[in-house]
Amino acid sequence: MLETFNFRVILEYMPLFLSCFFATLWLSGAGLIGSFVMGIIACGMRIGRFKLLSRIAYVYIESIRSTPLLVQLFFFYFGLPSLGLRMSEASTGILALTLNSGAYMAEIIRAGVQSIPHGQVEAAVSSGLNYFQRMRCVILPQAIGVTLPPMLGQAIVLVKDSALLSLISLPELTRAGQIMTSERFMPAEGFLTSAVFYLVIYYFLKWLTHWSQRRLIYMQT
């Protein structure tokens, strides 16, 4: 098979792959930012003092976790038009990614905040720091240190999840492979090239995780 592996065609399609590579990056990036914001909101509701908000957040998080992303994506893609909402594929895709990833982010943030030893809060309180000063100087910096590695893990998941957006015809890395398959009947060249691009992103994010862990090594109490 290797003899028939057509590198020239891959080079011909490289502009397509590159533009789809960047599409994947910006779709995942938008999803990451959106889900981070969503995660903070949902986490705040979940661990906050109002039982109603906490319950709503719980239902949201558990529903997302118990259903596949693809189903959620189709739910919005096929469902929103019937409500009169006409959104572009990109917006629908980012919406689905944001809501899906947001639930996992909420749990990551929750675990991080709750892992800070209560003694830290007590020490800050004893010095006379008020709630905002405590949060800003003591709790949040430590929470960020603890949640950064899992959040980078979630970023990796987001990049892989973005592949599903190809099934609603969004141009991105997997779709590039599909296009090569349908136009040139070369699925191997197409999808293997996509795979290589995904691995580039994956190894970069992995390296970022290791680098950040080395920077934060003083956090090991």
Binding site: I156, K160, S162, L164, T181, P187, F191, A195, L199
Partner: peptide, 22 residues
């Protein structure tokens, strides 16, 4: 590592389309 770094959708396309080629 490779399997964990690539989307499942791509993996399944590769398997589905690759095996007939070999």
């Amino acid at each position: 590592d490779v399997i964990r770094g690539t989307p499942f959708l791509v993996q399944i396309f590769i398997i589905f389309f690759l095996f007939p080629e070999i």
